[in-house]
């Protein structure tokens, strides 16, 4: 058989550049903040709180980054799934009131998981309807996408007002998830620790699916070049719908965690966090789940440290971080190779 390429003598092994720098930013930022904060226990409290917030932001943003990366859809209505997810948790909480007030931690966690499950199912179904009715007519038209998804979000917000009323609804954390774990002088809220664990579990699951399954390969390939995926014989539209449903369900999951964190439900809670989510996916690199994960943690860390050290700067800290990151890497931390 003929040898049809460079011989082994002329071929040199390309060096694989594994880009650890964005990952290293997280511990570097933490260590830089330690002397500025001064107290170790305060630093631990701030850092754990930031990690929890980062995980919640990641859960809310991860679906959007996939939707944008794969479908090239600017879904400004993503926040609606967060709000709906949060409100829908009320449906599960009604019959599980006993579990919520129980002192048994497992029943408390069970109530939280039931809320998450219901929220993901409902927001997934809502995502399917949203894709068919709102998104499908405007594929490839960014300006129309912005307008129609914003419009869709306003309509959905008003639907929440109609169904659950316009007043904010207080939401109590299950009994066993209230309070803090105190280690030395450092206090870590139990709920935030659970949010960190859940966030890591979801990130791990997404990582496994994207890297170890064929559907994950298809999603990653579709983010790069959907046309070529079709030319290989795969119906990318079905993949689009699937990813949109999963992205919506993840936003619903994030919405539940966010609602319990705030302990108040408002119809506008999704819209309020929308800007933050867009900042995170831009920092991470549009379409990159790993970038979104690092971006969410960085945004939360910067917000918490700045809030403690220079409260007046806290409001703009995320935008400042985005500017700095984009000056360093204009395509975000982990740019996805595009068509």
């Amino acid at each position: 058989m003929s040898t049809a390429t460079e011989t082994s003598a002329t071929v040199t092994l390309p060096k694989v550049r594994i880009d650890y720098l964005p990952v290293l930013l997280v511990p570097i930022l933490m260590l830089l903040a330690l002397p500025l904060v001064g107290s170790f226990s305060t630093w631990v409290t701030l850092t754990v709180a930031a990690l929890a917030m980062g995980m919640m932001i990641f859960l809310m943003a991860s679906g959007l980054t996939l939707v944008f990366g794969l479908m090239d859809v600017l879904n400004f209505g993503h926040g609606v799934f967060i709000s709906f997810g949060a409100y829908v948790s009320l449906i599960a909480l009604g019959p599980l009131a006993g579990w919520v007030e129980s002192t048994n931690l497992w029943l408390n966690v069970g109530a939280l998981l039931a809320c998450i499950l219901v929220a993901m199912l409902v927001t997934g179904a809502l995502g399917y309807a949203f894709e068919r009715v709102v998104i499908r007519p405007v594929y490839g038209q960014h300006l129309k996408q912005i307008l129609i998804t914003m419009g869709g979000m306003i309509v959905a917000e008003q639907m929440i007002h109609v169904i659950w009323g316009a007043s904010p609804i207080p939401l109590r954390l299950p009994e066993g998830l209230r309070g803090a774990i105190v280690i030395g002088d450092a206090a870590m809220e139990k709920y935030r620790v659970i949010a960190v664990v859940l966030g890591l579990l979801v990130f791990g699951a997404m990582h496994l699916v994207l890297n170890r399954t064929k559907i994950g390969l298809l999603i990653r390939a579709g983010v790069e070049n959907p046309e070529m995926v079709e030319a290989l014989g795969y119906k990318i539209r079905r993949l689009f719908v699937g990813v949109f449903i999963v992205g919506s369900a993840l936003a619903g999951l994030g919405g539940v965690l966010w609602a319990f964190y705030r302990q108040t439900l408002t119809a506008g809670m999704g819209m309020e966090v929308n800007v933050l989510i867009f900042i995170v996916i831009i920092i991470g690199g549009l379409g990159s789940v790993g970038g979104c994960f690092i971006g969410a943690i960085l945004v939360a860390l910067v917000a918490n440290y700045t809030g403690f050290l220079a409260p007046k700067l806290a409001l703009g800290s995320s935008i400042l971080l985005m500017v700095v990151i984009l000056l360093w890497r204009p395509q975000g931390l982990y740019p996805v190779a595009k068509r």
């Binding site: 390969l217 990653r220 790069e224 070529m228 190779a337």
Partner: peptide, 18 residues
Amino acid sequence: MAIFADLTVRENLILAAR
């Protein structure tokens, strides 16, 4: 060529093996 740059050589071929 439209190879998937973020995927490995193996993954590119796995996708093509429908």
